[in-house]
Design a binder for these strands. Structure first.
Length: 205
DNA sequence: CTGACGATTCACT
DNA sequence: GTGAATCGTCAGC
């Protein structure tokens, strides 16, 4: 199983077009190995945040703060922040240094370590709610805010590919979720989902 | 130092 | 469908 995983190379993350990277992340495998506990899931939902010109992005207008500084790093690190005081949201930083692109992972399909995901989330059985929605993804995989700035080329937190891919016709673009405050940018088709997949958040088609 | 609020989730009506 | 939970972050004083 995991012996056929190949960690994504730096060139995957330094790509200039964050929309393209978000699209390519669909079908890849998000892997964590904290304290020797291996958990992994196949990414089925992502959202792109397109730098300083994107009103929905934390880096809109070139804003730099202690929290968002990591978005300006070279692609290939994690950006994790706390939302609503409760939920840890995991993002992948892309593009090169000083261009604050990021991709929010909103849904994965559990592959490895499901019993550990159940322990972390306190759930009793593995149904579609286990890793659907960005808060649940981080909780099930054990990702927390202190993992922000973690390199995706280490062994604790990374993204891999295993040769699997979804048919192109099943990957569709939609507007992003929960970004109504972004005005017209809220309409942009920067969210990618696997059509019909149960681990995609929001209303089911 | 203070206050308002969020790239959400879940329990409950 | 509605509302509470909950706290780090950031703008403003």
């Amino acid at each position: 199983m995991q012996q056929s995983w190949h960690k994504l190379p730096p060139s995957f993350y330094t790509h200039k077009n964050v929309i393209t990277v978000a699209r390519r992340l669909i079908g890849k495998i998000l892997v964590t190995r904290f304290d020797g506990i291996l958990t992994a899931g196949r990414i089925v939902e992502t959202e792109a945040y397109n730098g300083v010109g994107d009103k929905a992005s934390h880096a809109y207008g070139g804003r730099r703060t202690a929290r968002t500084e990591v978005m300006y790093a070279e692609g290939g690190v994690a950006y994790v922040y706390l939302c609503y005081g409760i939920h840890h949201l995991f993002n992948v930083v892309s593009n090169t240094k000083d261009t604050p692109h990021a991709i929010l992972v909103r849904g994965v399909e559990p592959l490895t370590g499901i019993p550990d995901m159940l322990l972390r989330t306190g759930k009793k059985k593995a149904d579609y709610t286990l890793t659907r929605g960005p808060g649940n993804v981080s909780k099930a995989l054990g990702i927390a805010t202190h993992h922000t700035t973690t390199s995706l080329f280490g062994d604790e937190l990374f993204i891999a590919e295993d040769g699997f891919s979804y048919p192109a016709k099943d990957i569709i673009a939609t507007p992003r979720i929960g970004v109504d405050y972004a005005g017209e940018d809220a309409m942009l088709p920067y969210r990618f989902i696997v059509k019909g997949n149960r681990y995609v958040s929001g209303r089911q088609q």
